[in-house]
Design a protein around this nucleic acid. Structure first.
Length: 851
RNA sequence: GCGGGUGUGGCCAAAAUGGCAAAGGCGGCUGGCUUAGAACCAGCAGAUUGGGAGUUCGAAUCUCCCCACCCGCACCA
């Protein structure tokens, strides 16, 4: 009652919290100050901190996933500034890609225009959110000053044999009208069109030799301790390294041979057939003189295609057909039948296997179905001969039987010995196979980086007619023509631009045609974070000095959906740049954080589900501070977050409470704290408040350095504010001195700054604080003030609470025990019983074990 | 099938190393202020932590089994 009166009788300073007023005011000031969020030079004397969020595709609209991602990064960047770091916090645009072409078709707007307008709109939204980006370092991947370096890298890779062209079976998305990399095919569907089945086509395409780095990409994962284990596991699986042996089987009565890949060469004496993929060349050659077989193989291929299109490869039953031909096992000269089977993958290993039913689940099943013999050649070391059920797949503590000269050896030893034997006798070799394939980067699209290659029509010395000639570096960038008719069919749109296609050979000066495919947009995002360190450089992609200062990224933040695609390409690119001598780091990011999804009504927000919440609406209704703070408060950042508008309203209410309190006490809060608060009086209310304050500082500081449970940080701030509210009478009466109030509100504002920067800036100014609030030093907890001087010790009897006794903080075991046993309730409880044992945990509890 | 994650009041969620039957928010309820509502303010109620067993003086926390949901990978030789 006093309170509302004083609130009403208060001055203008007592206005209500109105984010619609204070946020634009601060935004205007921040926008006008280019140096505000600028990183300092290498000589700043401060430790560096590179805080990075994944750059968005400029669709034109920020969504809640972005808001969450950027709220996390922004809180961290501001905190690190307050901790005295030199922070690089950039933002950019992953601006090439198909949506711009689709929009062009739909609205008849050129992709460039559409994209740049979207970027402007989203930049505006980011500024409205108060995100602390250094816009001077902004990178836009669709501009020639950026993509010329894609071209430059491509040339470097070509020189080193890392970029090459080959004809192969590729994934084709009929919707995108372009090929896709393996990583971009999800369950047989396009990563952008989850209902579109990806087809297989034979095309000549450009590839980047990522497999050359397969081993390093794999072993490097072990060094990435700051990455989520989940992501590392996903990448390990994706790379799919597998050690084994390639063994040549001669085809009986023919010159051909079949090379099989096996990880269990030790079981080869148990091989009872050889199985070929339907597409295997030897299968084809058999089919050529066997129409019945040819028919069956065609059927198999057709069935597989149908299954893939139905997205249901698992449902297809394993089946095969005997070719009537035989292969010779080179270890024992045995003739085994050659089959063609639908479950053998043409593009893994050699597309052919030896089938060992006794020691492989799948071979066992297949042999059972077709009555192929099962021959046991491995037994447990200590078990009786032939003991145990088949298939027997263990390798540990197992030995070979019926395996010629290797009989009696352990599996592991035999694998090595038998590989060596094959090598020595010229019919095999130890081999490593990867699931990872080279990265197909050609796209038959317009809106991407032109591949800097031409085809010399007549050819010249060393180049056959139509041969590949790289464009010289001095001719870069190859600029994307502006006037292009975008259509949905008929190959790359660039192919129809005569002025682009027709050129001259840079070597012989004769007629030449330009490559009309463009690069996969994942090329753009593979190295953009290096460009941030030197985004205006027109002489090189970036200066090594600058990159070496800022890299590795100290914290990278983004969605887990990029665990394979973007994050494996980026790691590859980093290693290539290192080998080019441009950087020293082996990995792009020391720490990676993958935030959870934003969910609404139990499902991921999506237009098709109609459950999208617009950030603009939220900001208009509750303000940017409340919106972003809610995104941090509603769940730990790594978990999925259910968007509940009432929750945003709750955060908004909390902020207005902070505003009201700070305004009410702003005069005292504005006083310089002339004497150290540790010398303040000893009133219990003020002590309690100061204790709470310093406990809160400790907690938040800890959370920022470790696990980032911002939800609990914010909850802790709420607790502090609740405690202040509860002590309002004491503050009004002066029982809590003004100096203490000043200490409280000053620190409250500082702690709020990473989460609600607009309000923090406003309150800081009101209190007469100097400079930008997020460049003030982060508060340091005073342990003496945080410590309780008296602690409550629960006393249990057999684990059940009996009472609570108060003892001075730091009391020793004996004191606590004595206090507990002296308590009236305890005495009553113990009547007629025997205390068997007393457990005292100093500072924690007392547990009496009684009978 | 394999790998990873999650399960705490009506809802979102918190609880280093096991230690007061469990923070904070939303929602609900009561009261104040209001012509009334909104907003605001004061206060209240509400959970034996998916199920079961075990270890322990003591378990949301450790172990084992089971259930549910989610996310990766999936005929990889």
């Amino acid at each position: 009652m006093d309170m509302s009166e004083s609130a009403r009788s208060g001055s203008e300073a007592q206005q209500r919290y109105n984010p619609a007023e204070i946020e634009p005011k601060w935004q205007a000031r921040w926008d006008a100050d280019e140096r505000l969020y600028a990183a300092e030079g290498h000589d700043s004397g401060k430790p560096k901190f590179y805080c990075l969020e994944m750059l968005p595709y400029p669709s034109g609209q920020l969504h809640m996933g972005h808001v969450r991602n950027y709220a996390i990064g922004d809180a961290l960047a501001r905190f690190m500034w307050m901790r005295g770091y030199n922070v690089l916090h950039p933002m950019g645009w992953d601006a090439f890609g198909l949506p711009a072409e689709n929009a062009a078709l739909k609205n008849n707007t050129p992709p460039a225009e559409w994209t740049l307008a979207n970027i402007a709109a989203m930049r505006r939204q980011m500024r409205r959110m108060g995100l602390s980006y250094d816009w001077a370092t902004e990178v836009t991947t669709c501009l020639p000053d950026y993509y010329r370096w894609n071209q430059w890298f491509f040339l470097k890779m070509y020189q080193r044999g890392l970029a090459y062209r080959k004809k192969s079976k590729v994934n084709w998305c009929p919707e995108c009208q372009t090929v896709l990399a393996n990583e971009q095919v999800i369950d047989g569907k396009c990563w952008r069109h989850e209902d579109t089945v990806v087809e297989q086509r034979d095309l000549t395409q450009w590839f980047l030799r990522i497999t050359q780095y397969a081993d390093e990409l794999l072993s490097g994962l072990d060094t990435l301790e700051g990455w989520p284990e989940k992501v590392r596991t996903m990448q390990r699986n994706w790379i799919g390294r597998s050690e084994g042996t390639a063994v040549d089987f001669a085809v009986d009565g023919a010159a051909e041979k079949i090379t099989v890949f096996t990880t269990r060469v030790d079981t080869i004496f148990g091989a009872t057939s050889v199985q070929l993929a339907p597409e295997h060349p030897v299968a084809r050659s058999f089919a050529a003189c066997d129409p019945a077989l040819a028919g069956k193989i065609e059927e198999m291929i057709a069935q597989q295609k149908a299954a893939r299109e139905a997205g249901d490869m698992g449902a297809i039953e394993k089946h095969g057909v005997a070719t009537g031909r035989f292969a010779i096992n080179p270890y024992n000269g045995e003739r085994v039948p050659i089959w063609v089977a639908n479950y053998i993958l043409a593009d893994y290993g050699t597309g052919a296997i030896m089938s060992v039913p006794a020691h492989d689940e799948r071979d066992f099943e297949f042999a059972g179905k077709y009555g192929l013999p099962v021959r046991r050649v491995i037994v447990p070391k200590d078990g009786a001969n032939g003991a145990g059920d088949l298939p027997y797949t263990a390798e540990e503590d197992s030995v070979l039987v019926d395996s010629g000269q290797w009989t009696g050896e352990s599996c592991v030893a035999a694998q090595q010995a038998m590989s060596a034997f094959a090598e020595a006798n010229g019919f095999g070799t130890a081999t490593v196979t990867y699931r990872l394939k080279d990265w197909g980067v050609s796209r038959q699209r317009y809106w991407g980086t032109p591949i800097p290659m031409v085809y010399c029509e007549k050819g010249h010395a060393g180049i056959e007619p139509g041969g590949i000639v790289p464009v010289p570096e001095s001719a870069l960038p190859i600029v994307l023509p502006a006037q292009v008719e975008i259509t949905q069919q008929g190959g790359s749109p660039l192919g129809r631009v005569a002025s682009f296609v027709n050129t001259t050979c840079p070597v012989c000066g004769g007629a030449a045609r330009r490559e009309t495919d463009t690069m996969d947009t994942f090329v753009d995002s593979s190295w953009y974070f290096y460009r941030y360190t030197d985004s205006k450089n027109s002489a090189e992609a970036f200066s090594s000095d600058k990159a070496n200062y800022w890299f590795p990224i100290d914290q990278y933040i983004g969605g887990v959906e990029h665990a394979i695609l973007h994050l494996i390409y980026s790691r590859f690119w980093t290693k290539v740049m290192r080998d080019l001598g441009m950087i020293r780091n082996d990995e792009p990011a020391a720490r990676l954080f993958t935030q959870g999804m934003v969910i609404k009504d139990g499902a991921k927000m999506s237009k098709s589900k109609g459950n999208v919440v617009s950030p603009d609406d939220m900001i208009a209704r509750y303000g940017a501070d409340a919106t972003r703070m809610y995104a941090l408060f509603a769940a730990p950042p790594d978990r999925d977050l259910e968007w509940q508008e009432e929750g945003v309203a709750g955060v908004s209410r909390f902020l207005s409470r902070v505003h009201r309190l700070t305004m009410k006490y702003s005069e005292s809060a504005g006083q310089r704290v002339s004497e150290s608060a540790t010398n303040a009086g000893t009133g219990s209310a003020e002590q309690a408040l100061l204790r709470k304050l310093h406990q809160t500082i400790t907690k938040i500081t800890m959370d920022f350095s470790g696990r980032w449970h911002f939800n609990t940080c914010i909850a802790a701030i709420m607790e502090l504010v609740n405690a202040i509210v509860a002590s309002e009478p004491q503050m009004d009466s002066g029982e809590v001195p003004a100096a203490v109030a000043a200490e409280l509100f000053r620190n409250l504002t500082l702690m709020l700054a990473p989460f609600a920067p607009f309000l923090a800036a406003e309150l800081w100014e009101t209190m007469g604080g100097e400079g930008a609030v997020f460049r003030v030093s982060w508060p340091v907890a005073d342990e003496g003030l945080a410590r309780e001087n008296e602690v409550e010790i629960p006393v249990q009897s057999n684990g059940k609470l009996v009472t609570v006794v108060k003892v001075p903080a730091g009391s020793d075991e004996a004191t606590i025990k004595a206090a507990a046993l002296a308590d009236a309730k305890v005495v009553a409880r113990l009547e007629g019983k025997t205390v068997v044992k007393v457990i005292v945990v100093p500072g924690k509890l007392v547990n009496l074990v009684v009978k």
